[in-house]
Write a protein that binds this DNA or RNA. Structure first.
Lengths: 135, 135
DNA sequence: CTTGACTCTGTACTAAACTGCAGGGTTTAT
DNA sequence: ATAAACCCTGCAGTTTAGTACAGAGTCAAG
């Protein structure tokens, strides 16, 4: 019910005010409507959406891709069939990312576990192995 | 043994030649040494390293962070103790990313599975649920 | 022995994603 | 009723991560 002003949204989501306006310009956030005095008046869910955008970004999705994800639930003209196709393409992408992260994770875990002596790093050849993973 | 020239490295790693030189300027790739005529002469492992950088980037690490990862195995003065501490910090970060990806994955999978009718997207409330996950 | 494909340095340009004003109006606490 | 703390638009500046020349040298094939 009670709408939020832009500063409240920004603080709650942990971003700069300008970032909120920037996302609106990019189409990632819909026009929130205005109060009588012309201030943007946001529904509380906006905070969750901004946080979602930030998280997805930290996972390597561009704003354009995130826009694609969000559009899945906005486009009234898309059929579920189209949405499912898009969602499945994204799923494959996400699975690849998870697999890559696990490889890096395994290499780092091995590194951390194997470095028990007090010698210099050059005696820890595990990151070399990690790099070879990607050849 | 047989060294590679910059164009061969770029092609093998699937990046632009300028990107290789850019990574060298940023300290992500060491000075490879030169042939008699002044051409950069790379050891073959360079290809793996460039691919590693690209993959890590697609997972949301900045070049600065990737430099930190790579430095783990280069800094001769660091003790294994320090390396382990850094590696473990990175591990936590990677685990958080994997967890986030899995949440997005689950939401998308549910979306794809549930959209079996031919109605419009607005009847698929699953991405709303995904957003609420991040509140 | 020249043509085409490659490399060099240096500088400048681009795109994405913000971030920060300037110059104005609004709201709220004292 | 006035200062502090908000908000508005519009536009310019910044950072990150490349990309693209220009002008010059190198090398291999025909």
């Amino acid at each position: 019910m009670s709408k939020l002003r832009i500063g409240q949204v920004a603080q709650a989501a942990g971003v700069n005010i300008e970032t909120i306006r920037f996302y609106e310009r990019c189409g990632l956030l819909a026009d929130p409507g205005r109060s009588e005095s012309g201030y943007r008046a946001y529904p509380p869910e906006t905070v969750g959406r901004v946080r979602f955008i930030k998280r997805a970004q930290q996972l390597g999705f561009t704003l354009r891709e995130i826009g694609g994800l969000l559009a899945l639930r906005i486009d009234e003209t898309a059929t579920c069939e189209q949405v499912r196709a898009q969602a499945e393409a994204k799923l494959a992408e996400i699975d690849a990312k998870i697999a890559d992260l696990r490889r890096i994770r395994a290499a780092l875990a091995a590194l951390a576990a194997a470095c028990v002596n007090d010698g210099p790093t050059s005696e820890c050849p595990l990151l070399d192995a990690m790099e070879r993973e990607f050849e």
